[in-house]
């Protein structure tokens, strides 16, 4: 059993070492949500009136409303970044080293997922600290309560990245795929506007948003930040994580998935 933990420690440690060596990646991961928070929200707040909806008990500023969505955005981008580095690893050959380990492949992939999730969480907390510096302070216990939601959301979006990496054949194609995944997922969600606002414009779009698992990651985080549990969102995120992990393991099965097409 100690071997299993040793593998987990090594894979997660390697992810951290690589992350530390990529300072630009860390900077980009922070700048992106801060641009939304500071610039986009400033311009948008006048256009969007928010009513009091759970979990909020008072009127909130638009900046406060989009913080959970931006936390989820950090998880989403990092999941995609991790997926990109898997495709890179495959092209550079180091994926072979991982997959020829004597440990079960599902465990190796899960450890990789844990590593990318841990990095995502670190980035989210750094973002929340910066947001606090800009005056957006959330209930103090909420910073702790949100941790399981960030973990689960990170796993789900990391698993989505694993699935994509098992189906995208070449690094060059990946930018296109990321655009097709990131932008619809982000904009068709409750990250920037509540679903009732979307329903005013288009009930169909509202239904699509409600179906989007990313919406549920956002809502899970939003409620946990205010010390509440959104059970519907929790079940959606858990279910999506299980489904995506299963597809990823299938995608990396040597008898069926990625390596066969790749070779």
């Amino acid at each position: 059993m100690s071997g299993f933990w040793g593998v987990a420690r090594a894979i997660i440690g390697r992810e951290f070492l690589r992350f530390v060596h990529q300072r630009e990646r860390f900077l980009a991961a922070l700048v992106r949500p801060m641009v939304w928070l500071v610039i986009f929200a400033a311009g948008f707040r006048a256009a969007l009136g928010l009513s009091i909806i759970p979990p909020y008990q008072n009127y909130i500023t638009y900046e406060t409303y989009i913080v959970p969505g931006l936390c989820a955005m950090v998880l989403l981008f990092n999941g995609m970044q991790s997926s990109l580095s898997l495709v890179y690893d495959r092209e550079m050959g180091s994926m072979r080293l991982l997959l020829t380990s004597s440990f079960p492949r599902w465990w190796l992939l899960f450890c990789r997922l844990l590593g990318s999730t841990a990095i995502s969480i670190l980035q989210v907390y750094t973002f929340l600290a910066l947001a606090a510096l800009f005056g957006i302070v959330l209930p103090l216990p909420g910073y702790v309560a949100v941790l399981p939601g960030l973990f689960l959301g990170g796993l789900m979006l990391g698993a989505l990245g694993l699935v994509l990496s098992s189906f995208v054949k070449q690094l060059e194609n990946f930018a296109g795929v990321m655009n097709f995944v990131i932008f619809p997922m982000f904009f068709l969600s409750s990250a920037l506007y509540p679903l009732w606002k979307m329903a005013e414009s288009s009930p169909l779009l509202r239904d699509i948003c409600a179906f989007n698992p990313f919406t549920h990651v956002v809502e899970l985080i939003r409620f946990l930040l205010y010390l509440q549990i959104n059970w519907g969102a929790l079940i959606w995120v858990l279910g999506s994580t299980v489904v995506l992990c299963t597809i990823a393991v299938w995608g990396y099965d040597p008898a069926r998935g990625l390596m066969k097409r790749k070779s």
Partner: peptide
């Protein structure tokens, strides 16, 4: 195995690369 295409982490040291491999094969720490 030594693959045709190098399977190395260029940014890590020789020792770090080998430590990673040792863990992947379950060698006692």
């Amino acid at each position: 195995v030594v693959f045709q295409q190098p399977a190395l982490d260029m940014g890590l040291t020789v020792r770090q690369n080998m430590t990673y491999f040792a863990a992947l094969h379950g060698l006692p720490r």
